[in-house]
Every structure is written in C-alpha cells, then in structure tokens.
C-alpha cells in the first residue's frame, strides 16, 4: 500500500473547555476520495478544518497531537500556514465567491502568489474553469460578477478557484449541501474526475453521496472516530453497532 497522504496522530481539539475532537488517528490515502460522515455536531467539519489549520482563526482553540502531510507535521512551529493552505485547498459548505468578476475570483490565488502575466493568468483561469466543468457555461461572461451565477455554478467556480492555486489536497466541507439534485450530481461527477489528480477529503451529511463518491469513509460521533475503512465495507458490513445504526438511519 502507498504511503498515506495525510496522517493524524492523537489529534485532540478543545474549544475553550469543551472537547470537540478526542484523539483522532487516521490515514488518508493519496488520490482517493475520503468521506467523513456523522450526525451534525460530531466534529467532522472541525476535523476537516484542522487539516489546513483553518481552526487557527477561531479564538480559544487548543490543539494537541499531530497532523502529518507527506510526513511533515503541519502543527510544527516551523510551518508556514500561508504556504500550507496553498497546498491544501478548501471548498466551503456555502459557496463563497468574492464580490468580483468570475475571472478575478479564479485569478485571485495566482495573483496573490505574484502572478501578473496577463496571458498566463488567462491560461490558468481557463484551465481551472475547465477542470471544474464550468468553462462552457461562463466563458462568454468571465468579466461579469460571480454573484450572478446560480448556486451550483458558484460552487463549481469556487472549486475552480481552489484548483487555480494548484493544491495537492482539496478539502470539501459539505460542498453540495445547499444545492439542488442536478447541481449536486454535477459536483459529484466533478469529484470523481478530480480524484485522478488530487487527494480529496469531503465532509457530507448525505450518506448516499458518501457511498457514491468516496473510496474510504470515516464515521464520527461526539468528537470520536468510531469507524474508518473502505466505503464499501462501512456501508455493507460495519464493525461497530453505532455505525450500523447511523447508516441505516436509526439516529442522527
């Protein structure tokens, strides 16, 4: 088996006095889709956000344990968080385009990295939008405001925006939860395509979605990692009773 892309070791997280994650250890494989499932408030989104240190922004968060990306502990004092986030991209639950044009949205990442060559920027924007399957829909209105796109289009544009920075890992926090079934299907198709080149971690509350798109699934409950394994196994013959109860819809 390949060396896992991300390894966490005893990752524990406190919001002030409240423990939100309890000693999570997990190996996330490279260029596959890993899904986190569990009832809301179980810590799956919190865990996702520890993987690119987005929790740093929240006051009173205390984290112990290790997160190793390519065997590098990203909580090491020597690590540059800004560069880390360039390698570990993120797509959020609610699509969050900037109030700028579609072009400016996608070119944002390359620009802050010092890319000013206009031709090169156009190239990056085009290829990113193509990778996110949205190029055909927006190519004639690249300079219109991104706010004018539909919810599903906005979310795919946000994915394109994340891709433009050339990450190796993409974290997706319930990327389709606010979308209609058709847009959701498009996103899922996109995820399937992206895993050829990227390591993808996706949080979802939709179990069918997890079963459809992921290779590996982790089930969280009350801040604990209950079960972690091949998606097929988790959804057919889970080891733990709690997992079985959750996926058969008996609670949550």
């Amino acid at each position: 088996m390949k060396e896992p892309k991300i390894k966490t070791r005893d990752l524990t997280l406190f919001y002030g006095e409240k423990m939100a994650l309890n000693a999570i250890s997990m190996d996330i494989p490279e260029k596959e889709v890993t899904a986190f499932i569990g009832p809301s408030g179980c810590g799956k989104s919190t865990f996702l956000r520890t993987l690119n240190r987005m929790n740093d922004l929240i006051p009173n968060v205390k984290i112990t344990g290790e997160v190793l990306v390519d065997s590098l502990n990203i909580y090491d004092k020597q690590i540059d968080v800004v560069n880390l986030r360039k390698k570990v991209g993120m797509v959020f639950q609610k699509s969050n385009p900037f109030t700028k044009s579609i072009f400016e949205n996608v070119a944002y990442g390359p620009k802050i990295n010092g890319m000013n060559n206009k031709a090169k920027l156009e190239e990056i924007v085009e290829s990113s939008l193509k990778k996110a399957f949205i190029w055909e829909e927006v190519k004639d209105r690249l300079h219109d405001s991104a706010m004018g796109l539909s919810g599903g289009q906005q979310q795919r544009m946000c994915i394109a925006r994340a891709l433009a920075v050339e990450p190796e890992i993409i974290l997706m926090d319930e990327p389709a939860s606010a979308l209609d079934p058709i847009s959701t299907a498009k996103i899922e198709e996109l995820i399937f395509e992206l895993k050829k080149s990227y390591t993808i971690v996706i949080v979802t509350h939709n179990m069918q979605q997890a079963a459809r798109v992921s290779d590996v699934t982790a089930f969280f409950y009350l801040g604990e990692l209950i079960e972690f394994g091949k998606t097929k196994k988790i959804f057919t013959t889970p080891d733990k009773k709690q997992t079985e109860e959750y996926i058969t819809g008996r609670f949550g």
């Binding site: 987005m54 922004l57 800004v82 991209g89 993120m90 385009p97 900037f98 994340a162």
Partner: peptide, 12 residues
C-alpha cells in the same frame, strides 16, 4: 466566509 475563502487560497 469571504475572509476564509481568501485565507484558504493561501492569502496572508
């Protein structure tokens, strides 16, 4: 969300 989007793209 917009601040987070920017930071997640590697902006300082």
């Amino acid at each position: 969300e917009m601040r987070e989007a920017s930071l997640a793209l590697g902006a300082t």
